Simulated scan of single mutants.
Amino acid sequence: MISIKNIYKSYGKLQVLRGVSLEINRGEVVAVAGPSGAGKTTLLQIVGTLDRADSGSVVYDGVDVLALKERDAARFRNSNIGFVFQFHQLLPEFSLEENVALPALIGGVSRGKAFDRAKELIEYLGLGDRASHRPSELSGGERQRAAVARALINRPQVVLADEPSGSLDSHNRAELHKLFFDLRRDFGQTFVIVTHDELLAASCDRTVHMNDGLITSID
């Protein structure tokens, strides 16, 4: 489904990725692990079209997203890729429901349909009684589940997660990890998860180990 080939990326004189290649199959849950500075987040951002590689290709079902113009890449990203970050990145002035609906509204979905879809996801994730609350009124686990709902609003093919459980306590971490596999079962999404969490990595279909800008092994 995703074919990543020979990705190089430098920031000035610092070479962050040094020829990374990886194939990700549809419906997989793949962990990307390694020490800080290994290039994990940079790779995830390039795969998600949030950053540009110096060279190489990232092909989603025949579409080389690195060859797209910026506006086309943004449109592709909005329609096909969901993101979950470590610190949820919810907008504080909006309610949970508004935060979840926002990517659909940006994508041109009518307000009615966007909020209907948001309500479905919020209920699915057990947050129905919190829909009108702002992020400051939610627990850490609730905020991260809201971020997952937002990632799913446009029915993306792929969800990319960067240390999604890094700011959570052990209970909420376990709940979030279970949620990823429930979502794969119920909605068929492909997940690529950058993580330092050994338990999460061990539960994934495959773990890609990185160090010094290279893939060193795949379990």
Score class of each variant (00 low, 15 high):
Gly12Leu: 04
Glu142Asn: 03
His171Arg: 10
Gly37Ala: 03
Glu70Gln: 05
Leu125Thr: 09
Thr195Phe: 13
Pro92Thr: 14
Gly48Tyr: 02
Arg206Leu: 02
Ala53Trp: 03
Thr207Trp: 06
Asn25Gln: 13
His177Glu: 15
Arg130Phe: 03
Ser3Tyr: 12
Val192Gln: 08
Leu44Cys: 09
Asp182Gly: 10
Ser10Glu: 15
Arg185His: 12
Gln189Lys: 01
Ala104Gly: 00
Val30Gln: 05
Ser165Pro: 05
Gly166Arg: 02
Val58His: 00
Leu17Ser: 05
Ser36Asp: 14
Gly166Val: 08
Asp219Asn: 13
Glu23Asn: 09
Phe83Tyr: 08
Val158Thr: 13
Ala149Ile: 15
Leu68Ala: 08
Lys40Arg: 13
Asp64Ala: 08
Gln45Cys: 06
Asp54Leu: 02
Arg77Val: 09
Val208Ser: 07
Leu66Trp: 02
Arg155Ser: 15
Ile81His: 03
Ile106Arg: 14
Val148Glu: 06
Gly141Thr: 05
Lys178Ala: 14
Leu44Tyr: 07
Ala201Lys: 00
Val63Tyr: 11
Ala38Glu: 04
Cys204Ile: 06
Gly188Ile: 12
Ser55Gln: 14
Pro156Gln: 09
Leu160Gly: 01
Glu28Met: 04
Leu160Met: 12
Gly112Phe: 13
Gln89Glu: 15
Val63Ala: 08
Leu22Gly: 03
Ile7Arg: 00
Asn154Asp: 13
Ser139Trp: 07
Arg150Thr: 08
Asp116Phe: 06
Gln15Trp: 10
Ser167Glu: 12
Pro103Ser: 10
Gly128Lys: 12
Val58Asn: 00
Asp64Tyr: 09
Val16Asp: 03
Asp169Cys: 02
Ile215Gly: 00
Asn80Lys: 09
His133Lys: 15
